[in-house]
């Protein structure tokens, strides 16, 4: 029942859009209507799915890399305050630098285009996991820390049995953000690096289609990418709820 209103609103919006395109006789190379977009989507479905698959492959690989490297780096940084204050600023620099500005250099240095996409998407996605996990590692209950110390726990025991589980909800919260960023990073990288040929992702197809003024096709790419972003978020949200269900009452930190 809760979804009736937003879905109804969306359908109404599409109807108004289609009606306006027809009423004002807008040419399709300026602005296509929803039916033209759906038509392009249907006509090129197999091709678009192949492109989407490539984009999602890079996104998933970048997210997996960001999750593992971000979490591992956070565990490393939390071992020493000095280490953290030395290295964390560089993570911030990595975060605030727009990846579009780094892309040209990466393209020069790295030959394999898939590797270029992966590196750029990883750069876009790693920071939320890193900073959230770091926050979570530090948020461990001070009394539990005292207890571990009291019982003579080793550093490894404290890290694995106290800090890492404490950080898990924070890590998962970061992962949800990183999922969307990995997709954005992949899309931006594809647009800048301009993949071509058979191994070309959905974003480069979007750019090609818009160059050729095939706007229905470009819009179809856009719709699929948006849907992929939503699916990634919903999927990661469900994953984190599932993992945290047994020991947390509901929402993630």
């Amino acid at each position: 029942m809760k979804s009736v209103l937003p879905i109804g609103f969306g359908v109404a919006l599409l109807a108004v859009w289609e009606a306006a395109i027809r009423a004002f006789d807008v040419p399709v190379y300026i602005m296509p209507g929803p039916l033209a977009i759906a038509g392009a989507l249907g006509a090129n479905f197999g091709d678009l799915m192949a492109g989407l698959w490539i984009t999602l492959e890079v996104t998933a690989a970048a997210l997996a890399l960001a999750a593992t490297s971000g979490a591992a780096f956070a565990v490393l940084l939390v071992q020493s305050r000095r280490l953290e204050s030395t290295l964390f600023p560089y993570a911030v620099i990595l975060q605030v630098t727009p990846i579009v500005t780094i892309a040209p250099f990466v393209i020069i240095w790295v030959e394999d285009i898939m590797a270029v996409l992966l590196i750029l998407a990883w750069m876009a996605a790693v920071f939320p996991v890193l900073s959230n996990t770091l926050l979570g590692l530090k948020a461990a209950d001070p009394n539990l820390r005292d207890l571990f110390r009291l019982y003579g726990a080793t550093r490894a025991q404290t890290t694995l049995r106290l800090l890492v589980p404490s950080a898990l909800p924070y890590f998962l919260g970061g992962l949800r953000i990183s999922g969307g960023l990995a997709l954005i990073g992949t899309v931006v990288a594809e647009m800048v690096a301009g993949t071509s040929g058979t191994r070309s992702g959905l974003a480069s197809r979007l750019v090609e289609a818009s160059y050729r003024l095939e706007l229905p096709l470009a819009f179809a790419c856009f719709v699929l990418l948006s849907a992929a972003g939503v699916a990634i978020y919903v999927g990661l949200d469900a994953l984190s709820r599932r993992i945290l269900r047994k020991w947390q009452d509901g929402s993630v930190a």
């Binding site: 209950d141 009394n143 539990l144 005292d146 207890l147 009291l150 106290l162 589980p165 898990l168 047994k246 020991w247 947390q248």
Partner: peptide, 12 residues
């Protein structure tokens, strides 16, 4: 040592 809060690990 018993703290004012139960201080249990929620994941265990």
């Amino acid at each position: 040592f018993v703290f004012q809060d139960p201080t249990l690990m929620p994941w265990a």
